[in-house]
Simulated assay, not measured.
Amino acid sequence: MKIIRTKADLRALTESWRRAGETIGVVPTMGALHAGHLSLVERACAENDRVIVTLFVNPKQFNNPEDLAKYPRTEDSDAEKLTPYGADILYVPDGAQMYPEGFATTVSVTGVSEGLCGGARPGHFDGVATVVTKLFLQTDADRAYFGEKDYQQLQVVTRLALDLDLKTRIVGCPTVREDDGLAMSSRNLRLDDSARATAPVIGRVLDRAAASMSAGQPAEETLARAREDLARAGMGEVDYLELRGDPDLKLMTHADRPARLFLAAWLDGVRLIDNVAVAPYASQ
C-alpha cells in the first residue's frame, strides 16, 4: 500500500488504472481506524480492482474548535491496520491540498441534512458534502463506502451524488458493534473506563424502544421512557432521540412505515451517536 499526499500523485495513479480498465473504490475516513472502518475496506476490496482509503480530518465539518483539536490523529497505526486488507493507496492530503488559498465553494444538501446532527451541529453537513464531493472527484471512484452508524451522513452523501450526477455509487454498510453492543466509533477512544462501561446502554435502550414502536406504541411515550432509562444509567445530555422515516428522515409519531430511531447523547464529554432500524407495525 502506497501513502499518497498530493492530488497530482493520486491522479497519476488513478489515470493509469483507468487506462488498464480497472474499477476504483474509495473509503473516506478521518482516521483513528477501527473494525467498522476496516469492514468497509474489506468490502471495497472485494468489489473493486483498486481501493483508496482517504484520511483527512476535515475542519469544515467541525463547528466546535475544541472537538476538532481533540479528534484522534493516528496515521501510523492506521496505515499498519490497513496493511492486511489489500488497499492500494492511503491518501493523506493536508489542508492546502483540500482547501487551497482562495477556496470559496460550499456544497449544501437540504432536506435530509436538516435536524438530528444537522440541527445540533450547524454547518456540519455542508462540510461533509463539500469534502466528500472533492474526494469523489480526486479519487475518480466508481463506488464509495459509508457505514450506517452515521445514517444521516449516508443519506446526505447519497442525495448529493444523485443530484450532482456524480458517477460514484454510494454503498451503505451495516454498523459494526463491539461485543457489548456499543457502535464502533473513533470517539470511543476518548471514553474513560467508567464511561466506556456505561456507553453500551445506548444500544440496549434503542433496541427496546424500537421493539416497542414496532409493536404499535406511539413514539412520544416510548421515547420519554427511553430518555428516563438513559438518565438512570448515567448518560449525560441527550441532543436528540427521534423516530424518523427511512430514507427521507422526516419526523414520525408512529412506526407505520420503515423508520429509524436516532440518538445523540453526551458521556464523559464525548458526543456519541447511534441509530437502529424500526420495522413498521402491522395495524389492525
Rank of each mutant, 00 (worst) to 15 (best):
L261H: 14
A35W: 00
D49Y: 12
A282S: 13
M98S: 14
P258S: 15
V132I: 14
V57G: 00
P218D: 04
V51A: 06
V131I: 13
A264K: 04
L10G: 00
E80T: 08
T158Y: 01
A197P: 05
R143N: 04
V51P: 03
E178F: 02
L223H: 00
D229L: 13
F146C: 03
M213P: 05
L164V: 04
R232Q: 15
V128N: 02
G269R: 15
M184V: 02
G95H: 12
L249D: 10
R11H: 06
Y240D: 08
G118W: 06
M1H: 10
G86L: 12
V53I: 03
A277N: 08
T14L: 04
A104E: 12
L10F: 02
K81W: 09
V109G: 05
M30W: 09
R43Q: 14
P174F: 13
N275W: 11
E242M: 07
F136C: 07
A46E: 14
T105M: 12
Y99F: 14
G115R: 01
E75Y: 01
V156N: 07
V276I: 15
R50F: 09
M1G: 08
A265E: 02
A215N: 10
R169H: 11
R19H: 13
A199I: 05
M252C: 13
V27S: 09
A277S: 14
E75D: 04
R244H: 11
A8F: 01
A209I: 07
L249I: 07
Y151P: 03
S185D: 01
Q217L: 13
A219Y: 08
K2P: 03
L116G: 11
L162V: 07
G216C: 03
M30Q: 05
V156S: 06
A255I: 02
A265D: 03
A255W: 06
Q61R: 06
E15P: 05
T105W: 11
P59C: 10
E220F: 09
T6R: 05
A96S: 14
L230W: 09
A215I: 06
Q155R: 15
G95A: 13
G86N: 11
K149F: 14
H37F: 00
L241Y: 07
P72F: 12
L261A: 11
D126E: 11
E15S: 05
E42D: 12
Q152R: 09
L241A: 07
A32V: 00
P247H: 07
L230Q: 06
T198M: 08
A224Y: 00
A35G: 10
H37L: 02
A211W: 02
A35D: 14
N275Q: 12
D150V: 11
L251G: 14
G95N: 15
D180T: 03
L90S: 00
P84L: 09
R208Y: 07
D207G: 10
A87N: 14
G115F: 07
Q61M: 13
L230Y: 10
F125N: 13
F56N: 00
Y71N: 12
K7F: 06
D246F: 06
N275K: 15
D88C: 01
E22F: 03
P280N: 15
S113I: 05
L116T: 09
A35N: 11
P59K: 04
L82T: 03
D248I: 07
S194Y: 14
L261S: 10
T253N: 11
V156D: 13
A197M: 07
G181H: 06
R232V: 02
D274K: 15
Q152S: 13
V276F: 10
E22C: 09
G118L: 01
L261G: 13
A279P: 00
A79V: 04
D78H: 00
T222Q: 02
